[in-house]
Design a protein around this nucleic acid. Structure first.
Length: 553
RNA sequence: UGGGUUAUAGUGUAAUGGUAGCACUACAGAUUUUGAUUCUGUCCGUCUAGGUUCGAAUCCUAGUAACCCAACCA
């Protein structure tokens, strides 16, 4: 029995195109502008474009849309390549729109010769005025009917550097009365005396998006050029230029971009968070960037699954952050090593345990036997979690409380006999007695307890710094709230714990490994971690039924 | 008030004129040496009003709502 999986609308188009022989094979592309770091929204596009290539035996190019030198940088190129690779995809070719500057220039000349483009002397403001509004038609520029030869000469002079920025532009000659604003003689080329990160100072005229993107698609023989909804109005121009130029007919298809609750997804806003210091860097673990998520401990697999689950359609969406967390936990649960660490330590003393004794107890490493076991050191004095003790047990409380019994994971059952407090009321130690016959693995005590808690032996524990992250914003959709989105930043999104204790095996922790700190969540080593000062990021908590219970009350 | 696009449980996504399904969330229960995992169950939906049809989420008409478009950005 094969599982029936419905196709998204783009897959349907492709299957139709393949079935009726329009194409023998497909070619897609992922076309970022190297002006920022990739985020989870880009991941959706990456998974879509590369996924399509893979699914239909086609190929996918990585093409940098680098037509605006003042915003772009090699730093972004490098990070984008790293992120796409990390997500698990391999591009057929690494390409740049700037590779086509010469070809694009020749195409522009072709258009001028056909009488379909002209050089305009108007400045930006005049052009905007004559463009009209959505409800009123525009008016022709006085230069609209200048001679082809004159435009040709002027355009050559533009390229040669004779004019300053903004003095002249090349425009397509289409229809100043079109209801589609993008068809009212759109700009094709502008002058920018700026250094380009790849072409240096070779050019001082640069093509606009509309005269670069579709043409690049066409040059590469891209069959399905997939972009987001806001480019729908550009499609008429995309098709017009390809038709008039008589070049390979790539076709544009649009899908709805990803939006997620409690974060922002525009490069401009993300850049602000970085430059204004609301987060530390592009790869701050609270950022929805691929690099931030990677540092936080997300796996590529979980992000790919997420992109698969959210689907592809044409309507605006707002995905629950909890779906991303579900995909994360689903993957981490399968692969994370189980270890013990105490985030908020309080001392537990086993009064009837021999003072100098240490036992090496066996504990399982993972969710199934294939992960094997390790030993953890057990002794008279342990660190346990402060929140695992209640002076007066609440209803349905399964953990430590005077008179209550719990199992210490992989060790013994202990009974809480008492506790000591500092004068300020803060708990300083919990006193317990253990049941020697209840040793994990050969428990003959006959006692069963409801609660099991984690612990580390004080004498054997190693210190660690642990960073806990909460959502970056206090509201579901900061971009749509009144006022500036930054007013809704959650000031408590980062909590640093400097006095945590973790089990000794973590001395050998690596950034490549994911860990589940039993009962506390999934963690990974941060890049700032050092051998004498371990630093862990909490990737995500475990689901917590008790916390829900508490919140209900 | 021009043009374009989209409306299906709280969220996302299927159903291509013929039983409104799946996942997440929420809630309830079982199992559990992680209050995790796993397993079982429950709640909740076709934007509105007309029409065509034996039969409409799907087709038609008229509304309504949301988003996009007037950068020498992409």
């Amino acid at each position: 029995m094969s599982e029936e999986k419905s196709l998204n609308f783009i897959e349907e188009i492709i299957e139709t195109d393949l079935a009726n022989g329009k194409y023998k094979t497909i070619l897609t592309r992922f076309p970022p502008e190297p002006n920022g770091y990739l985020h989870i929204g880009h991941a959706k596009s990456i998974c879509l474009n590369f996924g399509l290539g893979l699914k239909y035996g086609g190929k996918t190019n990585l093409r940098f849309d680098d037509t605006n030198p003042v915003k772009e940088d090699i730093e972004y190129v490098d990070s984008i390549k790293q992120d796409v690779h990390w997500l698990g995809f391999n591009w057929e070719k690494e390409l740049y729109a700037s590779d086509y500057f010469e070809q694009l220039y020749l195409l522009a000349i072709d258009l001028i010769k056909k009488g379909l483009a002209y050089v305009d002397d108007l400045d930006a403001e005049e052009i905007a005025t004559l463009k009209g509004t959505p409800t009123e038609p525009g008016k022709d520029s006085p230069n609209r009917n200048r001679l082809i030869e004159e435009s040709l000469l002027l355009f050559a002079e533009m390229k040669a550097g004779k004019y300053k920025d903004g003095e002249k532009v090349l425009r397509a000659k289409i229809d100043m009365a079109s209801p589609n604003m993008h068809m009212r003689d759109p700009l094709l080329y502008r002058i920018k005396h700026a250094h380009h990160h790849r072409t240096g100072d070779a050019w001082c005229i640069y093509p606009m998006y509309d005269f670069a993107h579709g043409q690049s698609d066409s040059i590469e023989n891209i069959t399905h050029s997939i972009c987001t909804l806001e480019f729908i109005p550009h499609r008429e121009l995309y098709d017009w230029l390809i038709e008039k130029l008589g070049i390979f007919p790539s076709q544009q298809f649009e899908f709805a971009r990803l939006n997620m609750t409690y974060t922002v997804m525009s490069k401009r806003k993300l850049l602000q968070l970085v430059t204004e210091g609301h987060v530390q860097s592009w790869d701050d673990p609270r950022m929805p960037t691929i690099s931030g998520m990677r540092r936080r401990g997300f796996t590529a697999e979980s992000i790919r699954n997420f992109c698969e689950k959210i689907g592809v359609a044409r309507r605006e969406n707002m995905i629950d952050f909890s779906l991303l967390e579900f995909c994360l936990r689903e993957d981490l649960n399968k692969s994370a090593l189980r270890v013990m660490g105490i985030l908020d330590p309080v001392k537990l003393i086993i009064t009837n345990y021999p003072d100098a004794q240490t036992e090496e107890l066996v504990s399982e490493n993972g969710p199934d036997e294939a992960y094997g076991t390790r030993t953890v050191s057990f002794s008279k004095e342990l660190w346990v979690e402060r929140e695992d003790f209640m002076e007066e047990a609440a209803k349905k409380w399964f953990r430590l409380a005077p008179g209550a019994m719990v199992r210490l994971k992989s060790a013994y059952i202990v009974k809480c006999d008492g506790f000591t407090k500092h004068v300020d009321g803060k708990l300083t130690a919990i006193h317990c007695s253990y049941i020697p016959e209840s040793k994990s693995g050969n428990d003959t005590s006959g006692i069963s307890v409801k609660g099991t808690i984690h612990w580390v032996s004080i004498a054997h524990a190693i210190p660690a710094e642990i960073r806990l992250y909460e959502r970056l914003f206090k509201v579901e959709n900061p971009a749509s709230e009144e006022g500036d989105f930054k007013e809704y930043i959650n000031e408590d999104s980062l909590k640093i714990i400097t006095n945590a204790w973790v089990e000794k095996s973590l001395e050998k922790a690596t950034t490549a490994t994911r860990y589940q700190f039993l009962r506390k969540g999934y963690f990974c080593l941060d890049k700032e971690s050092m051998s004498d000062k371990l630093v862990f990021n909490r990737t995500v908590t475990l689901k917590d039924a008790w916390l829900k219970e508490v919140k209900k009350r």
